[in-house]
């Protein structure tokens, strides 16, 4: 199957990357943007989708500070 894993900072946790983006926007003339949070998207093909959850916990995401969602995009 093809899957997409969306990883983002947990709610409430400080996101320096998001803050940096937020701070840069007014300088480029984009006003009124708040609460920018930057995560990442991983696309992969897996022979056995049963392992996806565990590989996300062990490698793709840091479960202490990040949430992740697995989305199946093609069976």
């Amino acid at each position: 199957m093809k899957a997409r894993v969306l990883i983002r900072p947990k709610e409430g946790i400080l996101d320096p990357q998001g803050k940096a983006v937020e701070r840069a926007l007014p300088a480029l003339g984009f006003e009124g943007i708040d609460n920018v949070r930057v995560g990442r998207l991983v696309e992969l093909e897996a022979d056995d989708p049963a392992h996806l959850e565990s590989l996300c916990e062990k490698l793709l995401a840091n479960p202490l500070i990040e949430d992740f969602e697995i989305e199946e995009i093609e069976a």
Binding site: K10, E11, G12, I13, L14, D15, P16, K19, A20, L64, I65
Partner: peptide, 14 residues
């Protein structure tokens, strides 16, 4: 409780 992260994130630029 999930809103109260125990891990503090450092921001060296700040």
């Amino acid at each position: 409780d999930a809103k109260r992260p125990t891990v503090q994130i450092g921001d060296p630029f700040e």
